[in-house]
Design a protein around this nucleic acid. Structure first.
Lengths: 128, 128
DNA sequence: CGCTTTCATCGCCATGTGCCGATGATAGGT
DNA sequence: ACCTATCATCGGCACATGGCGATGAAAGCG
């Protein structure tokens, strides 16, 4: 949440900012609740109240996680009536990332299925 | 650090454990210091004192980060004299993950170069 | 106009995190 | 045997984080 990085000045600053941006991105995935949210959003748009039901968390908690993911640039909301429809910004690329993590976890020992619908390592090429 | 997941019982438990394992993995990358460590280790084996010099952090801090990465199964140490040589466990797969993150960050707006030597998206196939 | 639903934000609390210095163990070097 | 270098671990300290309930603003519905 308290992590931002979106300028670029010195040639080394660029790398450092890249690291903080990457750290922020990975932080978005470093929580089971947020991971579940991403998985649900990968299946399509969802409202906050919908996610609260799926996750069994308080509405405020879900909103905060969504705000966190929004800070990372992973999701965005579209006002729909009095609700907010949340969706992944770059689904295919996100799934690529999850697939890569899946492969790594497979090597680490745990057999994991992160991507909801799509299998382990398919769906390459489209970035959005 | 306080996250582990290496069993598998019920069919749904499997998914939950997968999420915690994945969260743990991403947590390993969710810190600029650890990210720097991974980048340095991607270039080859390094000792702790070497990394402290590169990072400008205390030795205890670096050791703790390495322990964290070890918990995630990302790195491992090889005793070399009185020192410890640390190295990435699955360099190619890790770089794949970083490359995927790079692509995602590129879409998000930040131009980032995570992978030290290798460019953005090469080096496929070898998993160890 | 009220009532309800949905949501973002705030305050609060318990816990986790990153950082450090200090300590003790291990292993080379003299 | 002694000293030095290297490292893992411990205790402690700020601060961030994740969780919750409560509050207030939008926006449908009667």
């Amino acid at each position: 949440m308290a992590m931002k990085a979106t300028d670029a000045a010195a040639p080394d600053r660029e790398v450092a900012d890249g690291l903080t941006a990457a750290a922020c991105l990975f932080h978005g995935f470093s929580d089971t609740s947020r991971l579940s949210i991403v998985r649900h959003l990968a299946l399509g748009e969802h409202r906050v109240v919908d996610l609260t039901a799926h996750l069994g968390l308080a509405q405020s908690t879900v909103s905060q996680h969504l705000a966190c993911l929004k800070d990372c640039g992973l999701v965005s909301s579209r006002p729909e009536g009095r609700a907010s429809m949340w969706s992944l910004n770059h689904p295919a690329t996100v799934m690529d990332l999850l697939a890569a993590a899946e492969r790594l976890l497979a090597l680490t020992g745990d057999a994991v299925t992160l991507c909801p619908t799509y299998g382990a390592g398919s769906l390459h090429g489209g970035t959005s």
